[in-house]
Design a protein around this nucleic acid. Sequence first.
DNA 1: AATTTATTTGGAATGGTTCTAATTCGCACT
DNA 2: AGTGCGAATTAGAACCATTCCAAATAAATT
Lengths: 166, 166
Amino acid sequence: MVLIRTCDLEPFQLTDGVPIMPTTTTMPTETAAQTLTDSGLRSTPQREVIYSILLNKRDHPTADEVYARVKTELPSISLATVYNCLETLVGCNLVRAVNFDREPTRYCPNLRPHAHFHDENLGSTYDIDLPPDLLEQIKAILPPGYNASSIEISFRGHTAPEAAQN
Amino acid sequence: MVLIRTCDLEPFQLTDGVPIMPTTTTMPTETAAQTLTDSGLRSTPQREVIYSILLNKRDHPTADEVYARVKTELPSISLATVYNCLETLVGCNLVRAVNFDREPTRYCPNLRPHAHFHDENLGSTYDIDLPPDLLEQIKAILPPGYNASSIEISFRGHTAPEAAQN
DNA sequence: AATTTATTTGGAATGGTTCTAATTCGCACT
DNA sequence: AGTGCGAATTAGAACCATTCCAAATAAATT
Ligand SMILES: [Mn+2]
Ligand SMILES: [Mn+2]
Ligand SMILES: [Zn+2]
Ligand SMILES: [Zn+2]
């Protein structure tokens, strides 16, 4: 894995030549470290590694799954720190928390407006891109006086085997 | 409160002259007892009272809130039974479980397709009716091979004081 | 280097929900 | 109406994802 930098601002990680970067509407203009310090927080190895783990495998892992993955890089990290870091990353809008019913919270670095599809057979979660016009239509069903700060759309169901997923 | 019966099939509860009934697209054709026995389950006082409590005050109560309300009618009921009954009512599609992030599950007797708005100030939850065509448009964003068995749409935000709620 | 403040850490606590095993109930069949 | 049997209720224990706590460590500031 190699760190590259585009525009002298954005450090992206290369794995097998595939650039890994946060999925934003526009190109990201800040590194995670920048976003953290901009929010008055410190850039720590734990936060950076956890963020990179979310970027590298976007399968919406739970805190436990993140814990298992980060331990290979930071063997002495604690589960409490994983929770703390994930909360911090969510707090500065680098990551989104995704919930399905009462299952453990999952974490997603995709910052574009998108819905989630949860395959009940596989337990897998997929991103479904949300057309901007549809998002507007959905917001439009709210009666006057209802001011939404966030919208969440989630599907449950099954995926056909031929719909090849990552 | 008076129990009335229309069509010799549907027992509705009258509170101050206002008929209380499940909110379905069409008029309900079965009583709760019917739906239960049709599902091979028994109609018990606990199940009936809990269902009537959900119909009478549609504020999306939690299991604890249902417990507090049902105790006035069935003082010896247990919290475990409240959970059991709610699960049973959800299982035979008389009631829907509604989740906001990791908050306690709430329960809703509105069976029409609708979204939920959660007021973060008041902690209140409101039903937002969902136009059928919009529901179709939302389903249409799924790639081929993704078969959704349920869709959930939830808003978080604040309501203006003049948007008078129940 | 010393001080200050933020972060990490292990372990305990929390709280909504589920599980367990005993009791009670509803219902079908005498 | 009484009996038997499976279903439902009950109290309390257990579960488990998450949060809290207080001590240790690390990062920034002086
Ligand atoms: Mn699942
Ligand atoms: Mn709330
Ligand atoms: Zn996602
Ligand atoms: Zn509802």
